[in-house]
C-alpha cells in the first residue's frame, strides 16, 4: 500500500458516497446512467470472485465487499426506489459493444488461461470503459447537476491516482502489471474532456454545460 493508492481508494469511496448522497437528497437518479452503474456491478462481481480463495488483507476484503454491496444497492435504488426518476430514453449507449470486445480481449490478454484470471482481465477491461454510457448521456443532455459532476470527478481522480501508484510500485517493488496499467491509462484518458470542463467551469462556480 502506498500514499497514491490509498488516496485513490479513498477517492473511489468518496465517489460512491457522493452518488448515494445525490440520489438520497434529490430523491432522484436523474442524470445517472443505469447502464454504467450496472456495468460497475459486473466489474466488481467478476473481479472480486477471489474473495472466496485469496486473502490479501482485511482492508482489501472489506473494500471489496463494500464495492460489491454499494454498487448493488445503487442499482436497487435506481431500479426500484427511484425508478420513475430514471429516463431510459436518454441512456441509450449500446453496452453489448463494450461487453463483447472486453470479453474477447480478456481471452487474448490474461495472466493465465483460467476461469478466474479471464474474469479478472475482463473486469479490468470493462472497468476501463464502463463510464462511457454515463459520459455519452452527459454529452446528449449537454449539462449536469453539480453534485453529479463531483461524483464523476472523484471517480476520475481515483483512476488518475492509480497511475502514480504504478510508477511508485515500479521503482520500489519492481512490479509492473501491464494489463492493469494499459487499461488504467485508457480509463483515465476517457475523463480528460470531462476534467477540462469540470476544472474550468464547475470549480469556478459555474454550471456544468457543454458547448452546443
Amino acid at each position: 500500500m502506498n500514499f497514491f493508492r490509498l488516496l485513490g481508494d479513498l477517492s473511489h469511496l468518496a465517489s460512491i458516497f457522493i452518488l448515494l448522497h445525490k440520489i438520497q437528497t434529490t430523491r432522484s437518479c436523474r442524470g445517472i446512467s443505469f447502464k454504467t452503474q450496472a456495468l460497475y456491478v459486473a466489474v466488481f462481481v467478476t473481479r472480486y470472485l477471489d474473495l472466496f480463495f485469496r486473502y490479501v488483507s482485511l482492508y482489501n476484503s472489506v473494500m471489496k465487499l463494500f464495492f460489491i454491496a454499494s454498487s448493488c444497492y445503487i442499482l436497487y435504488l435506481m431500479k426500484y426506489k427511484y425508478r420513475p426518476t430514471h429516463d431510459p430514453s436518454i441512456d441509450t449507449f449500446r453496452i453489448e459493444y463494450l461487453l463483447g470486445p472486453c470479453f474477447v480481449l480478456s481471452l487474448i490478454f490474461n495472466y493465465k488461461f483460467s476461469f478466474s484470471e479471464i474474469l479478472w482481465s475482463f473486469s479490468i477491461f470493462l472497468e476501463a470503459v464502463a463510464i462511457l454510457p454515463q459520459l455519452f448521456m452527459l454529452q446528449r443532455t449537454g449539462e449536469a447537476e453539480t453534485i453529479t459532476t463531483h461524483y464523476l470527478a472523484a471517480l476520475g481522480v481515483y483512476r488518475a491516482l492509480y497511475i502514480p501508484n504504478w510508477i511508485y510500485r515500479y521503482f520500489t517493488e519492481g512490479l509492473v502489471d501491464p494489463i492493469a496499467v494499459t487499461a488504467g491509462i485508457v480509463q483515465t484518458g476517457l475523463y480528460l474532456d470531462f476534467f477540462y470542463v469540470y476544472f474550468t467551469k464547475v470549480l469556478q462556480g459555474q454550471k456544468f454545460e457543454l458547448p452546443a
Binding site: 477471489d50 490479501v56 473494500m63 479478472w120 492509480y162 501508484n165
Partner: peptide, 10 residues
C-alpha cells in the same frame, strides 16, 4: 486455485 499473479489492488 493457484495464483498466476498476485492481484493485491482493488
Amino acid at each position: 486455485e493457484e495464483d498466476a499473479v498476485s492481484h493485491d489492488e482493488l
